[in-house]
Structure formats: structure tokens, C-alpha cells
Amino acid sequence: MIWQVELIILILIIICAFAAIKVRDLLSAALLLGAYSFLMCLAWAVMGAVDVAFTEATVGAGVSTVFCVAAVFHTTRRTKD
């Protein structure tokens, strides 16, 4: 639990989340969600929740990004908001 690292990661997480819902390209949104998940995994590893961080690294940053990209591939990439 190093609070400086923790604080920096939390700020980056919030920026990533904000960007993921603001960006006008769905593929970018999916990839930003992956980056968000990976930063979240780092935050949990710093907090000492190793099992949760491991699960998030495999599931959130790995598989769910692939699912999102697959869905965007079969629908559309453009959006109005």
C-alpha cells in the first residue's frame, strides 16, 4: 500500500473511464475499457488484493476486450455520441 502510486493510478483510472465514454469511436472505447481494466488491476495489486488483481488482468483486460472488439466488428464503429 504505497499511497503515491495508488493516487496516481486512481487519477489515471478516472481519466481512462472518462475517455472511454467520451470518445466517438466504438473500437477506441473498447480498447480504452481494456486499459481502464488493466489500470484497475494495478490498483488492486497495490492494495494487496492479489487474487482479484490476477482475475481482473485475465478477465477484464484480456477476454472482455476481445469480446467488445468482436461485437464492434459485427456491428458498427461509428456513433454520434
Binding site: 487474487d51 490476477f54 482475475t55 485475465t58 478477465v59 484480456g62 477476454v63
Partner: peptide, 9 residues
Amino acid sequence: PGGGFQGGV
């Protein structure tokens, strides 16, 4: 750290 869920994924 690890287990069924992580290994399976």
C-alpha cells in the same frame, strides 16, 4: 494467487 477461475480464463 490463482485458482479455477483464473486458470480457466
